Simulated scan of single mutants.
Amino acid sequence: MSFTRTTEQSSKYEHLEQMSVAQLLENINNEDKSVPFAVERALPQIEALVTKIVGRLKEGGRLFYIGAGTSGRLGVVDASECPPTFGVPFDLVIGLIAGGDAAIRRAVEFAEDDREQAWKDLSEYTINDKDVVIGIAASGTTPYVIGGLEQCNANNIITGCITCNQGSPLAATAQYPIEVVVGPEFVTGSSRMKAGTAQKLVLNMISTAAMIQLGHVKGNKMVDMQLSNHKLVGRGVQMIVDELSIPQDEAAALLEEHKNVRKAIQAYGNR
């Protein structure tokens, strides 16, 4: 399949090494400004995938991200932030990266070129047709990701993708493709920049919208968040104060007793 990889096209800027720090920052920032508009154009695709994810999660399914390099790391980050933010089990949203967890910190050579490994990685989690798998690859050509989605399709598992090229092999493989075309990078081919930012924005949308739909937010508050540090405990106390209009010390006592903002509010209402 032939297509144009805009993520590999030459930067619109020349002689970067001759620019001042101020010029570099201004030009990078100018390029970054275009990313939210590219995401906006993909909103219908994002909506279609999120709707499917919510349905599967309500039926007891899980959400998997698979990717390599920057794309894989972004998936791992988004997955790892769901339990503390929304109080969900650590295995509800799972991020897998080519080369394994060691690749989160240090690149594993040629890991992304193994077309069979993603399915092996997914199989360790006993993946099934209740689950959803999203392949993340800026280029839309990563063998690890494409191979994984192909196997998911063959096993009746819903597949989506996030890519930054139009008409890529990955988008053709995914049942619910998301294509956020951000154009050439400031540094030619450095897709950790605009493409990475676009992927992060889309991942934020997917996980946040899904968790809200699943009921893990009340009003605009993270009432199911894990109280894992003093800052979050303080935030939880303030949520209870705002919701119930009670003194801070009473709210703190409620939170200490029930260890969860939602449960504390419910317990007060049941008195």
Rank of each mutant, 00 (worst) to 15 (best):
R192G: 03
R115P: 05
D114A: 06
R115T: 12
Y144S: 04
Q151R: 13
L24R: 04
E124A: 14
V180T: 10
S34E: 14
V76W: 08
M1G: 13
L96P: 02
S10R: 13
A251D: 09
A154K: 14
N27A: 11
Q213W: 11
S245N: 14
Q151N: 13
R106T: 15
T173V: 12
F90Y: 11
S168Y: 05
K231F: 05
P83M: 05
R105G: 12
E40L: 13
V182F: 05
Q18E: 15
L255E: 02
R41V: 00
T126Y: 00
V35E: 03
S80Q: 10
R62K: 15
T51I: 10
E14S: 14
K130H: 10
G75I: 00
N30W: 07
T163M: 07
W119V: 00
E250Q: 15
R271A: 15
E124P: 00
V39H: 03
R73W: 08
Y144G: 03
I162P: 05
G234F: 01
H216Y: 15
E47A: 14
G189D: 11
Y268G: 00
V133G: 03
T51E: 12
P169T: 12
V180I: 12
A251N: 12
G215N: 10
R62N: 10
Y65M: 02
V187N: 13
M205E: 12
N27F: 00
G67D: 03
I94C: 08
